[in-house]
């Protein structure tokens, strides 16, 4: 494809994306009522941990996008009327929007490195410090002998 054609395609795609969001500013703050404190906590936790997939980088609690509003509504329905637990909510969202929707990456094959690398790195670093310090002592001993 020629560069100009490519460009035209991209501007079309971009234009299409811009039109994804109707330009009416919607409510951010809904006064949802809950039956129990647990429900409210679960709602707040999940709304914070779910990504608004059309936004730049915002969770659905803080986003003003219409899709985020729909997802809040859905989340509220699930928490209050369907008595859904965290796993059910996560499954519902992942089924539709993929892992991308989760701010807490699930522990699975492609996130193994993400979750364990910090701990491996910490263990290795402690080992490195101890062996480095030991080595300085050994080396210093050697130098003394050499002299």
């Amino acid at each position: 494809m020629k560069a100009s054609a490519m460009k035209a395609v991209w501007s079309l795609v971009l234009l299409a994306f811009v039109s994804l969001i109707p330009l009416s500013a919607q409510a951010v703050i809904e006064s949802y009522q809950f039956d129990t404190a647990e429900q409210k906590l679960l709602y707040q936790k999940m709304a914070r941990e779910l990504r608004c997939v059309v936004c730049q980088n915002q969770n659905i609690l803080e986003s003003t996008a219409p899709l985020a509003q729909d997802l809040r509504q859905q989340l509220y329905q699930m928490v209050r009327y369907q008595n859904a637990d965290e796993k059910q909510i996560v499954d519902f969202m992942v089924q539709r929007y993929g892992d991308f929707v989760l701010y807490r990456p699930p522990l699975q094959a492609n996130t193994l490195i993400l979750w364990i690398a910090p701990f491996l790195l910490l263990l290795f670093s402690v080992y490195w410090v101890v062996s480095y310090v030991r080595q300085t002592q050994v080396d210093a001993q050697k130098e003394k002998h050499d002299d």
Binding site: L20, V54, L67, D70
Partner: peptide, 15 residues
């Protein structure tokens, strides 16, 4: 009209 069907398809906008 509510977008609920769209949600089941993971729709994030149109088209």
């Amino acid at each position: 009209p509510t977008g609920r069907i769209g949600m089941d398809w993971g729709l994030i906008g149109t088209p």
